[in-house]
Every structure is written in structure tokens, then in C-alpha cells.
Simulated assay, not measured.
Amino acid sequence: MEPDIELRNKKIERYYRLHSSIYDWTRWSFLFGREELLNRIPELPPNPRILEIGCGTGTNLTNLEYLFPDALIYGMDLSGDMIRQARTKVDKSRQITLVNGAYGDNKFNFEPFNLILLSYSLSMLGSQAEQIMKQVHRDLTSDGYVAVVDFSDTRFSWFQRWMKLNHVAIDGQLTSLLNRLFIPRLTQHKKAYLGLWRYLLFIGRRRPSADI
């Protein structure tokens, strides 16, 4: 792993060591669109394989289990503290497997997925974002979908600086990155708090490698 990426990952791990126990109590007030995105995922084939990158405390995993009761679901997170919180929600599930580690690490050798979900995790990847999304492209089946909900952009430089202190890039770059790698099925930008920022809902199908 490159030194700057390893340093960033360690910073994020430290951040969530402090925030993991209060995450569910606090994030509901600004992580908009998560349930809407899940409800708009297209029909998947029988017994689909699903991965959430940055699964956090496992809220999306339990909702995915409800929506796709025949699915095999993996939740992956860099933070061991977040994984421990998630385990309290999913320990009794036979469908859900939790993985503590960095997505893209060579030690994880996943079979292709029918759906890969990123919920407010892509904007935290910084310079890794393109590399990670190319790996997502490789890890999808030929007809697989990616689903993303995340911060998109803001008109206010002070808010952008504040979000950067919380390891979030809110610079309007995500949509163009996703469009390069995936054929859009859903692209929506919605205002939060009267336009303080916009968040993105995106669902796309894997582009053929020759088109990238």
C-alpha cells in the first residue's frame, strides 16, 4: 500500500474510533437518501451477491437483507470499531458476512458481485476514489450494478473546508467519475438544508471494458 494512502487510512481509523459509538445517533441528521437509494435498486438475479464498501454500523446491510432475502451480502469497512458496531446488528444473520479491511487490498479475493453499494464512503477516499471505482468495475458481473449515495457539491467554501476536516471531499467530482465507468440508470442531485449542499443518488450498470 502506498505510504500516503496508508496514512490516510490510519487517520480515518482513528476518526471512527471516536465516532463509531455515536454514529447512528448523529448521522441521521445529514446522511440523506440512503433508504431511497436502496428502494430504487433494480431487480437482481436469484441469489445475488452484494457488497457494501464502507458498511459502517450495518444499517444498510440489514435493509439489503430485507429487500433481497435470497442474497449473499458482504459488508466491508476499514474501521474495526465500526465493524464491531455492525456485528451487534447482524450477528444472527446467515446472509451477511462482515469483513474488516481496506477494499482493493490484494489479500481479499472476492468472486464477482451483482451489486456493489457505496453509501457516503466514496467521498472519503480522496485520491483513491478513481482507483477504487476501477476496482469496483472489475469486481462486478458483466451485468452488475453499482449504487452510490454521497455528498456531491456545495456553493460554500467554508462548508467545503469544514467537510475536509472530517475527511470528506465535497467538490462535485463524483458524478463525472461514475459516468466514465458505468452506464447511468439513475442520476439525481438533491438539495440538503435549503441548498447548503447537494447529495448524489446514482445507480449504474457496468460499462464494457472496451468503452472505458
Rank of each mutant, 00 (worst) to 15 (best):
residue 67 L to F: 13
residue 101 G to V: 00
residue 26 T to G: 05
residue 100 N to L: 04
residue 88 T to A: 08
residue 123 S to L: 01
residue 124 M to G: 12
residue 41 I to E: 12
residue 32 F to T: 06
residue 121 S to M: 03
residue 64 L to C: 10
residue 139 D to Q: 04
residue 111 E to M: 09
residue 133 M to P: 04
residue 113 F to S: 00
residue 37 L to R: 07
residue 126 G to Q: 09
residue 83 I to A: 02
residue 137 H to E: 05
residue 122 L to T: 09
residue 76 M to T: 00
residue 88 T to N: 07
residue 89 K to G: 07
residue 134 K to R: 15
residue 59 T to G: 13
residue 27 R to V: 07
residue 45 P to T: 02
residue 62 T to E: 09
residue 130 E to F: 06
residue 130 E to T: 05
residue 103 Y to T: 03
residue 46 P to R: 04
residue 54 G to I: 01
residue 115 L to P: 01
residue 75 G to E: 03
residue 50 I to R: 03
residue 26 T to N: 07
residue 109 N to R: 12
residue 115 L to A: 00
residue 137 H to A: 11
residue 65 E to D: 11
residue 128 Q to L: 11
residue 46 P to W: 00
residue 110 F to W: 06
residue 88 T to Q: 10
residue 36 E to R: 06
residue 99 V to Q: 05
residue 31 L to W: 01
residue 73 I to P: 04
residue 59 T to V: 14
residue 51 L to P: 06
residue 90 V to C: 03
residue 87 R to L: 15
residue 85 Q to M: 05
residue 108 F to I: 00
residue 30 F to V: 05
residue 120 Y to I: 01
residue 84 R to M: 14
residue 133 M to S: 09
residue 109 N to K: 13
residue 65 E to H: 10
residue 42 P to K: 08
residue 45 P to V: 04
residue 52 E to C: 05
residue 35 E to K: 15
residue 51 L to A: 15
residue 103 Y to N: 01
residue 27 R to I: 05
residue 30 F to Y: 14
residue 134 K to Q: 14
residue 117 L to C: 10
residue 123 S to T: 07
residue 30 F to A: 04
residue 46 P to G: 01
residue 29 S to L: 15
residue 129 A to G: 06
residue 33 G to K: 01
residue 60 N to R: 05
residue 30 F to R: 09
residue 99 V to T: 07
residue 89 K to R: 15
residue 51 L to R: 10
residue 53 I to S: 00
residue 112 P to W: 14
residue 44 L to Y: 06
residue 132 I to K: 10
residue 118 L to T: 04
residue 54 G to V: 02
residue 47 N to E: 15
residue 77 D to M: 14
residue 109 N to A: 11
residue 80 G to T: 02
residue 53 I to E: 01
residue 134 K to E: 15
residue 121 S to Q: 00
residue 66 Y to R: 14
residue 92 K to L: 13
residue 116 I to R: 00
residue 62 T to G: 05
residue 112 P to D: 11
residue 55 C to R: 04
residue 32 F to P: 02
residue 61 L to R: 03
residue 69 P to W: 02
residue 27 R to Q: 04
residue 128 Q to W: 08
residue 125 L to H: 09
residue 114 N to F: 07
residue 120 Y to D: 09
residue 45 P to D: 10
residue 28 W to C: 07
residue 63 N to Q: 12
residue 117 L to D: 04
residue 46 P to Y: 02
residue 93 S to M: 07
residue 94 R to Q: 09
residue 64 L to N: 10
residue 113 F to Q: 02
residue 70 D to F: 14
residue 110 F to R: 03
residue 115 L to K: 01
residue 41 I to Q: 12
residue 83 I to T: 12
residue 29 S to N: 15
residue 60 N to D: 10
residue 112 P to A: 14
residue 44 L to M: 09
residue 127 S to I: 13
residue 102 A to R: 13
residue 51 L to M: 15
residue 122 L to G: 10
residue 117 L to W: 03
